[in-house]
Write a protein that binds this DNA or RNA. Sequence first.
DNA 1: AACAATTATATTGTACACAACCAATATAAG
DNA 2: CTTATATTGGTTGTGTACAATATAATTGTT
Lengths: 149, 149
Amino acid sequence: MKYDEEFVKLDDHLCFSLYACSRAIFRLYRPFLDKLNLTYPQYLVLLVLWERKQSTVKELGELLGLDSGTLTPMLKRMEAAGLVERKRSAEDERVVMITITEEGNLLKEKAVCIPRSLLESTGMTEEEVIAINSVIKKLLQTVNTASVK
Amino acid sequence: MKYDEEFVKLDDHLCFSLYACSRAIFRLYRPFLDKLNLTYPQYLVLLVLWERKQSTVKELGELLGLDSGTLTPMLKRMEAAGLVERKRSAEDERVVMITITEEGNLLKEKAVCIPRSLLESTGMTEEEVIAINSVIKKLLQTVNTASVK
DNA sequence: AACAATTATATTGTACACAACCAATATAAG
DNA sequence: CTTATATTGGTTGTGTACAATATAATTGTT
């Protein structure tokens, strides 16, 4: 089998397929997100805030798997763009609350069509996407528990 | 179904699972690559050069899905580290040939064990990895043909 | 031969990622 | 009450990504 041979080729590296695939999908999103003046990671932050109105830097980091060194400057740019508000919690001054603004909420209406548009542009069915997603989510869990060890 | 509802949640975004999974695997690689003083994209470049000794910036870009703005500085760092050689082609002065050095080739011996080590740390079987990889490679092809349109 | 179009790479600027480190705050232990 | 420890974000530095632009070389056409 492949992994017993002395050398595993690029094409047989699952990590590379995932990496290439992730970036290829970024490129599909770009024309849609450009219209909204969003980057892809910013879109992910908004997805969370559209679901729950408010979050913290810590929670966003856990949900998206990003650390403060990535999130803090990104959230500041989003604050400057008027999409979110950053405010320290009164109970615990270490916590920074991230709240969606009205302007940020309005973007939701313009963004809801994106997943369906992309689905159509790839010609895939919902069932296929859901099936692959469940495989990848399971893989993500496996990888995340492995990294704890 | 999910995509007919007005709003698709973060968790149902295949792109996010892929993105998160790709970075999670990066983190698994890091301790191994740190020992070799390599970053993950640099490791990918070496995978190509271990297979074919020599390539061009253009070809590397096509194989890895990276552009010159990413590759040029990366290859310069790898040249400074003594892993590759950059030399303009005599026939076509626009082409920069990338050749692996002896030192770069020696790293192969230290790197061949990485895929198997990672496989073991996740507890997955080869068959699982191969199966998921074939799913993702097909997805990558679908996405790439969609992006051409 | 001249020159426009194409191709290959480099350069620049913006935006992530993330490790390593730091400061402020909160909580627990003594 | 005070010290030790943990939590939470911010800062800094390195390394991708990639669009936009610049530069140089080659090719195709007239």
